[in-house]
Design a binder for these strands. Sequence first.
DNA 1: GCTATTTAATTATCGTGATAACCAAATAGG
DNA 2: CCTATTTGGTTATCACGATAATTAAATAGC
Lengths: 136, 136
Amino acid sequence: MMIDKYVAEAGTGDTDVIAQTLSMLRKASQLGRQLDAYFSAQNLSQLKFLILVVIDREPDTDHLRQSEVNQRLDVSKPVLHRTVMAMIDAGLLERSEDLNDARAHKLSLTEAGKTTLKAILPGYFQVISDFTQGSE
Amino acid sequence: MMIDKYVAEAGTGDTDVIAQTLSMLRKASQLGRQLDAYFSAQNLSQLKFLILVVIDREPDTDHLRQSEVNQRLDVSKPVLHRTVMAMIDAGLLERSEDLNDARAHKLSLTEAGKTTLKAILPGYFQVISDFTQGSE
DNA sequence: GCTATTTAATTATCGTGATAACCAAATAGG
DNA sequence: CCTATTTGGTTATCACGATAATTAAATAGC
């Protein structure tokens, strides 16, 4: 984009840094779109993928409460709620009661969720790897 | 995020590149949010800002057709349409007839649009510059 | 010159992010 | 203990991105 042309006029001094940062922003947005495309071809999204990942990676247990997922993922509570619900409907996650807190639920991956996660990981890294190759 | 832990298991070889790219994605998304916050505090958005920029930067004229803005900006036609309408309502842009093509309109910045653009640029670069400083 | 295609803009609908406001359960503090 | 606050989850609403389909004007190709 042509924003770069303004940089020279900005007079903040660090014009190179700004130009680099803008270029970084553009690259990230391109890659983000490619990842979105990859995930949506599998009926997933970046967020759904990350939800599978954080629950799966949890060291000592196979489940997390929604609020714990929330702490790990930097997404708003309503969005997480909506997405978790969709994933339960899609059979990727299941909820069970939390005996220590009647308000909470425990979220865990179903077999389908585990299978999906395993299936999606290689392509995910491939997209990233191809992207960095492509834009040398 | 903890995706990085998967990288070592991926076995694609270029684990460093992937880790760097993931880190880049995270940074870009943080910066994007800071820019969104900056713009929304001025009743703008990244897209509205870019629309002002591309029309203002046009070398030989002070206006562009919507389709020309579209070619320059990598945003869908409906989103551009909606956003342009909002900017017209907000008094930042004005439309006039295109004598060469009855379907098209010419979009140009109002005085308020020009003022807004000038006012917003320094802070924009400041946000970027602060961000790159902050995350050394 | 008339039909066929392309192009500019628009509408309708959806996906996915956010905030604000809310309920119910849990916890804290007097 | 009993009220006050915090916390987990949910609902309602909005912002802003997308695609598909539509209309009307312009252009192309017989």
